[in-house]
Design a binder for these strands. Structure first.
Lengths: 145, 145
DNA sequence: GAAATAAAAGACTTTTATATCTTATTATAT
DNA sequence: ATATAATAAGATATAAAAGTCTTTTATTTC
């Protein structure tokens, strides 16, 4: 469904969301250690997210990654788009490039609905709203490794 | 979402369903040509499906692949399971092996629903019901290439 | 200003998935 | 018998994804 890279990115975002209330900084090392992601791989993904303005970063001692008010307005869908692209939300289930409303594949109508549901699923989780739930313990984040 | 192999397998099944009313046989060559799938690759996938009793085959002249009453009772979900396995229907969205009702990941509840919808989407298309629609032209099958 | 810290960048390797090709065997219709 | 077409196994090639390593750059702290 999602690439491994994307799974890592989502876990990382979840981790930062939980640990970076009020723009507290989290090191790439912490993230990679606590989530079991290879360090350099995690670093690369975090760079992509930082470049896309989905997360913020600060170099140097006490540097790290963190989330501003602005960053927190992003949804999980933004993370998926930054790493895997928009494909999962829009691509034809049979992989047809020519598939569209006008020239639909036999499964088009049925799966249009499912894709919308998937899109909504990722878009409905906005990090600012989610942060409260994470911090209040409504959701597990202990076993992301 | 689905592997390329799985996309090919679904297209092949759709093609056979459309062209094999009353157990008429369809050659692997036709399938591969008309759907733009490399011949040997298509043949391999068709073998897997035949072995799984999802389609039927007949060797020799006038041989080919076809669907019996029994075969037609299968759904698209069976095809997906035969090629890609059950993962897409059940796996954790974050790829966690430990994710479950008891130890859910932060996204578990939200995406349980989506997975159910995906499962239903594939299971609801049973080939016998679908065949009528395909033959009546309710669905495009012209541009599967 | 020097040292330490940590992100940024990019080159590189490994692994996995996908695709292609070759060569045979088996079954069956004519 | 012969031709046809699925079955089967395996070698090879290509591409994409995942993972590793090294160097550079920016920033903070002392």
């Amino acid at each position: 469904m999602l690439s491994k890279s994307c799974e890592y990115a989502l876990k990382s975002i979840l981790y930062i969301t939980k640990h970076s209330k009020n723009e507290v900084r989290v090191g790439a090392k912490n993230i990679s250690d606590d989530l079991g992601i290879p360090y350099h791989f995690a670093a690369k993904l975090l760079q992509i997210l930082a470049k896309a303005d989905i997360i913020s970063s600060q170099k140097g001692p006490n540097g790290g990654f963190f989330l501003t008010e602005e960053n927190l307005k992003h949804s999980l869908a933004d993370v998926v788009r930054a790493i895997d692209g928009n494909g999962i939300f829009v691509n034809c289930i049979l992989g047809l490039k020519t598939c569209s409303e006008i020239r639909p594949c036999p499964l088009h109508v049925e799966f249009q609905d499912i894709k919308k549901k998937i899109t909504r699923g990722f878009e409905d989780t906005r990090l600012d709203e989610f942060q409260e739930k994470l911090l209040s313990g409504d959701y597990y984040l202990s076993n992301l490794k």
